[in-house]
Computed example of a mutant assay.
Amino acid sequence: MLTLPMLALLLPASPADDPPPVPEPRGYVASRAPGPITIDGLLDDPGWEGIPWTETFVDIEGDVKPLPRFQTRAKMAWDDRFFYIAADLEEPHVWGTLTEHDSVIFRDNDFEVFIDPDGDNHQYYEFEINALNTGWDLRLVKPYRDGGPALNEWEIPGLKTAVHVRGTLNDSSDEDDGWSVEIAMPWSVLSEFTAMPCPPRDGDRWRVNFSRVEWLHRVVDGTYQKVPDRREDNWVWSPQGVIDMHRPERWGDVQFSTAPPGTVAFQPDPARPARDFLHRVYEAQKSYHREHGRFAESFEELGIDPAGWTSPQLETTGDGYTASVIAPGEEGEPPRRWTIRQDSLLTSGPAS
């Protein structure tokens, strides 16, 4: 289990209440790898041929902050055994200190992966890696804002990772070009806490995001040291709007495809507006409960107008509430009722 100091490092640095409007999430089509991928960090395998890069990473808070100093991009592919992730990180000084598995890797510069297979905000995975190829894998039962916990004992048997440094690692006497990462996550492990098929079916969607932690440094006696009293930069693929990666509802939307790379266009999730509306209700209920000591029993009490939504419902329960609306289904599928509760669990079922 995580110790209290470790948990303190993981908790959001920004207030969790009343966040700014949700940034538009990124979308990506993850194709089957057209050939084999060898996990060596070089990204030159036939399996990456034609696989597109994501958009260049931005600050975790989005457009309200300047663009990152260094470029970061990622790409995704898959086959019957693995979900493949690659990243390229521009970096003039590649350095790292942590060599023990399951260290708190973001104390170094790092690259991080977040995966919520069924997009319900609960039971999601996190993996962090530094330039020394040291990893930290953990599972979140639910977000920290909803009480966690993080399970540090969770492991990824069969995980493959590699790092390639374009330069000299931990050598402050020169400048480097950067470093690249390859990760192969076995479907057998990713399937443990989801009902989603692993590997995915053509058209399935998962919630995924990537983060890069970058510390300002100085050189002291030839070694890299963090600049004192300066917090880290957080650069991400899909902006969160707040300094908190543990808001799965704001992660990117990865659409899996069996078609050749580049032949399928990303299709926005037709339920995304309904999901965003329900998270607005969730945030409003948190504020209402803090002020009144109970959850609101109607949209009107929350000051939210549900007009325009199909069959909106808000009901209090013994320990909280549920709020729901009906949203369109995927192409060719019937509408579904989406429901959120007080711990941000988001589920869907047949419309009724």
Rank of each mutant, 00 (worst) to 15 (best):
M1G: 14
T3V: 01
M6K: 10
L11Q: 13
P12W: 07
A13R: 14
S14V: 05
A16K: 09
V22M: 15
R26L: 09
R32Q: 14
G35S: 02
G41R: 01
T56V: 13
T56W: 03
D63W: 00
D63A: 14
K65L: 11
P66Y: 07
T72M: 08
R73E: 06
A77K: 06
W78P: 01
F83P: 01
I85S: 05
A86M: 00
E90F: 03
H93D: 10
V94P: 05
W95P: 01
E100M: 09
V104N: 03
D108F: 00
F111T: 04
V113H: 01
D120Q: 03
H122E: 02
E126F: 08
F127N: 00
F127A: 06
E128N: 10
N133T: 04
T134G: 10
W136D: 12
D137R: 11
L138Y: 13
L138Q: 07
V141R: 12
P143H: 04
Y144I: 15
R145F: 07
R145I: 14
P149K: 05
W154D: 13
E155N: 14
P157M: 10
P157W: 12
G158C: 07
T161M: 08
H164L: 03
V165T: 13
R166E: 15
T168E: 15
S173H: 12
S173Q: 13
E175S: 15
D177P: 00
G178Q: 08
S180H: 05
S180F: 01
I183F: 03
M185L: 15
V189R: 14
L190D: 11
L190G: 11
L190C: 09
E192W: 13
F193D: 12
F193N: 15
M196P: 06
M196D: 10
P197S: 04
C198L: 09
P199W: 05
P199Q: 09
P199G: 11
R205L: 15
W206L: 10
R207C: 06
S211N: 15
R212P: 03
V220K: 13
Y224L: 05
Y224V: 10
Q225T: 13
P228N: 05
D233S: 14
N234M: 15
W235G: 07
Q240R: 14
E249F: 12
V254P: 02
F256L: 07
A259I: 04
P261L: 06
P261F: 05
F266N: 08
Q267D: 11
D269L: 04
P270T: 00
P270G: 02
R272Q: 13
R275M: 13
L278T: 11
H279M: 14
R280D: 12
S287F: 00
S287D: 06
G293R: 03
A296M: 09
D305M: 03
T316Q: 12
G318P: 00
G320C: 09
Y321T: 01
A323F: 07
S324P: 02
I326D: 12
I326T: 14
A327G: 14
G329E: 01
G329S: 06
G332L: 05
P335S: 13
R336W: 07
R337E: 11
T339R: 08
I340P: 02
D343V: 10
T347Q: 09
T347I: 13
P350L: 07
S352K: 10
